[in-house]
Design a binder for these strands. Structure first.
Lengths: 208, 208, 208, 208
DNA sequence: TATGAATGAGTTTTCATTCAT
DNA sequence: GATGAATGAAAACTCATTCAT
């Protein structure tokens, strides 16, 4: 099964200059793919469904991408790349921002971005089996963690977070707690995420 | 694929008295299925692969189970049911126990149970799309959370955890952080889980 | 192209005891495949066409064979294995027999066996690119050549063939000339094969 | 595939005056096509592979040729037309020349022309199914045979070949033996072609 | 009770050809 | 003249499920 699966490199298509019309077609496929990963799960996405949703003939998929795994991989990573500068956690500069971000994402995630949360969790799982994806996700998570470390350090310097905890450890914890809450909340919409975040804030942010 | 997917009820097999040899065959299939879910992911498990791993004829699968989804569902839930009384988090009675549990699970998860961590994450994702599984997982997580609430309350009464945080919120947070750390650690074996847990302990457990 | 092509070994299916009904189904597919190779050429045979001709559903092909190349390979080698003991060149004991054999095969090949001649040529060409097939065909041709060497030696001992030619060389020549004539005759039905064989006989068989 | 297959006539492209740059492009495609037929076999050549090897855009193929079959057909026949005057068998004037030619072609075929031998065999097989190709190959083989007949007659007049064999028959035999040896030798590089040719020479050429 | 042969819907991928630019 | 994006038919292969034995 899946011989041609974890083949190390994934050249991500010629990547040379592409005509704008071709590029637009590619984008429609990528967007459709990202949506479908979020909706039905990575393993149940079919190339035909992607083409249908994009309003394109089926052959378009193989014309623009080397195969299904390349399409889905680029779709996921592209969606993350688009989301990050678009604001989301790029704008975090205080821990309160982080809390607010998670609160919003989870509490009303359907309103914000129907795609991104589920896409992230699906991709995290898939990445364990796809080396190319694992590398990309690894880099992304590391970048995110570095951002969190800086944020924690700033808060510690301001005296709002105790120096007793290591910034690195807390950054890892916050990132993991965020994704974990996301995952549990998606499964159980009744889950009192707010209470969990209140608890987290109480513990992390010094009242004084 | 998966026509009989979100079919509400799932009668969980004939359930009548089964001969012990039949029961043994069922068990071998369930064990094989649980292993494969963990290894290749829920969506890539095939009934043939399960039968092969169990060393049984292919027909045995449809003979003992209504279909693939029932087999996998029972396999996953059964594995969890086996694991819980087997010790794991049944024995938690202090927060330190919880910390120790997570530490062990993540730090040396391959040594403890190669199957359970991945199986849990796979099943959490799948459960969002399979009502029967969602209900079961929901119950399980709730039970787990109740256990955690009790644990937190005990620690608060002992004065080892501040009364400033709600026990419910902290329980949710701890559960989510555990799964989140598990997920991140599986993706990046270099991740400094210990630092994150140290941070968590520092924040939660009152030094005095 | 064709990564999974020249993969060295080809275990030719489990090969264990198969039920007689299964074996019959396999045989129908093999026969249909052999016919189609002869008719349309190795490269243009499709698994669907094979199944259709065998009067079986398309899935039968993948159920009974690992893939197209295994099906065609077994079909070809099986057809040769069936033909050899069936008489054809197994009964050769004099050079005149060989001449007669070639004469019959080529002159009226449609009447004798519509499949075998073309199948042989198609398989000879394909074998250059498929290691498993190459090995099998190599063995077969070698066996055939050994048979021819014995035959030539016998004729030399009887004084009907000159000792001036090496038996090995003549055996190779006769085999090659036979296949070459076959190939040319298939392309040009007007070709005077009889004249060529007369010439060969005159040269090889001592008049005295 | 190959709807327009046995369509009788094949107008061989516009044929009008072509610019020299266009002609050069055509030639590059033809050369690439001939190489690929020899390498992967007629049925596995794709138009894209031809364009890639020629270093030309994919559209160039349909621009310069009516379709794949026309491209491959012209490529093959063109390669033969180029090879013949280039020396090969144009220079034969004695039987020894013929022997020498076959010996060289087979013995060291990679060194002489990696393309031509395989291309010839591939085209001989394909020609049975493509009327246009069959006609062309028929003409070519006939011309070749006429040349051989003349050669044999000359040798007979010189007394080096017996008058007991018909020149026509021997010519057909020699041609077929040559192609047959080529085919067997390509499959089995160990084949003792020299011994076969020695035998042939001994039989055909009168020692005295 | 148990097996494994059979089936056919559905998946990914290939590719010659068409056609807009 | 040239190009390469687009298309859809057809290919091989997968696999859960059904069913005869």
């Amino acid at each position: 099964m899946d011989k041609a699966f974890g083949q190390a490199d994934r050249p991500t298509a010629p990547a040379g200059r592409r005509s704008s019309s071709s590029e637009a077609t590619r984008q429609r496929l990528l967007t459709a793919a990202a949506e479908l990963i979020a909706e039905v799960g990575w393993g149940r996405v079919t190339t035909r469904a992607v083409a249908d949703r994009a309003g394109l003939p089926h052959g378009a998929v193989s014309y623009h991408f080397r195969g299904k795994q390349e399409l889905l991989g680029e779709a996921a990573m592209g969606a993350f790349a688009d989301a990050i500068p678009a604001g989301d956690f790029a704008s975090m500069s205080t821990l309160a921002d982080f809390m607010g971000l998670v609160r919003t994402e989870i509490g009303t995630h359907e309103a914000i971005d129907p795609v991104l949360s589920r896409l992230m969790l699906e991709t995290l799982r898939e990445a364990e089996r796809d080396p190319w994806l694992r590398d990309r996700m690894g880099e992304m998570l590391q970048a995110y963690r570095r951002l969190m470390v800086d944020l924690v350090r700033r808060e510690q310097d301001r005296g709002r977070v105790s120096h007793d905890v290591s910034a690195e450890g807390l950054a890892i914890l916050l990132g993991a707690a965020g994704d974990g809450l996301l995952m549990h909340a998606l499964l159980d919409p009744e889950l009192d995420v707010a209470a969990a975040l209140d608890a987290l804030e109480t513990l992390v942010v010094r009242s004084a």
